[in-house]
């Protein structure tokens, strides 16, 4: 019988520096590994520990998985200092991803903050694969400073695509930055979307998700049309270890993508 805690082996083929604290790890799994955009994996640093991440690569690409990781804790700091070609463990994929079929025919507003752009990149690839199914994609991305922007070479390519409307803002400007300066909530007014047939997808740090959600409600989005990528201390990935519970949900199993409608009566979701 399958052991649910056993990771499969992946080789760390490449490490791409995205910013001073964020790197993308390119992993080649030794067994077939499928995931849907928005689902997460548990990545094991052998003998050290494991942590949950949502892959940032195109789910249609099977031979490698990109995982974009901020240096934030024990496992991630060791990963950031790790050499290439080591073996890593992969468990998953876990949870429910983005329900792409529900976005069809709609104006898709995506709001990303900081390293929250990572899971959204997988979503973008998923949307781009069938771009004609969606009315348009309006992307608003916020980073702390210009130096904190990730996927710097790719953003202009995505922004230039047909049906895509992209704006990047930074919280704090500097002489090198000629774009918009201001918190992410300041670029959500006068959006080029038809509120009657729009959905919003939000991913970023909890405080950003909270204020963006409040802003979107203010703009008239229905709670059921706001999709949030929640993150808690997911460990087993299967609703057994207990750590990622909020109210009656396990983030790992019932999420990590929830509509605000599902969560609005649950306490402390932004903590």
């Amino acid at each position: 019988m399958k052991n649910i805690y056993k990771p499969i082996e992946g080789v760390l083929e490449n490490i791409i520096t995205e910013s001073s604290k964020i790197k993308t790890f390119v992993i080649r799994p030794k067994e077939r590994f499928d995931f849907k955009c928005g689902q997460f994996i548990e990545l094991t640093l052998p003998g050290i520990g494991e942590a949950p991440f949502t892959p940032s690569s195109d789910p249609a690409v099977k031979e490698k998985i990109d995982v974009t990781i901020m240096n934030a804790g024990k496992v991630t700091s060791l990963l950031h200092n790790s050499p290439k070609n080591i073996s890593l463990g992969i468990r998953g994929p876990y949870g429910k991803g983005y329900p792409l079929h529900k976005f069809e025919g709609k104006d898709v507003l995506i709001v990303g903050g900081g390293v929250g752009l990572a899971p959204l990149r997988a979503l973008l690839f998923g949307l781009f694969a069938d771009i004609n199914k969606y009315n348009k994609i309006v992307f608003r991305y916020g980073a702390r400073t210009a130096q904190d922007i990730i996927y710097k070479d790719q953003i202009p390519v995505w922004a230039a695509k047909e049906r895509v409307d992209w704006l990047t803002t930074v919280d704090v400007g500097d002489p090198s930055w000629t774009g918009h300066v201001g918190l992410i909530t300041t670029v959500l007014n006068d959006l080029p979307i038809d509120m009657k047939k729009a959905v919003a997808i939000v991913c970023g740090p909890p405080i950003m998700m909270k204020f963006v959600t409040l802003k979107l409600l203010d703009l008239g989005f229905a709670p059921a049309d706001i999709y949030l990528s929640m993150e808690k201390s997911m460990s087993c990935g299967l609703g057994k270890c207990g750590h990622c519970r909020i109210g009656k949900f396990y983030i790992c199993k019932d999420g990590p993508v929830f509509t605000y409608e599902e969560l609005k009566d649950t306490h402390d979701i932004w903590d």
Partner: peptide
């Protein structure tokens, strides 16, 4: 029923 998963190296072999 809550539990924690840890990784360790025991006699040179990694295990959960």
């Amino acid at each position: 029923h809550c539990f924690l998963l840890e990784d360790r190296k025991s006699a040179g072999v990694n295990e959960k």
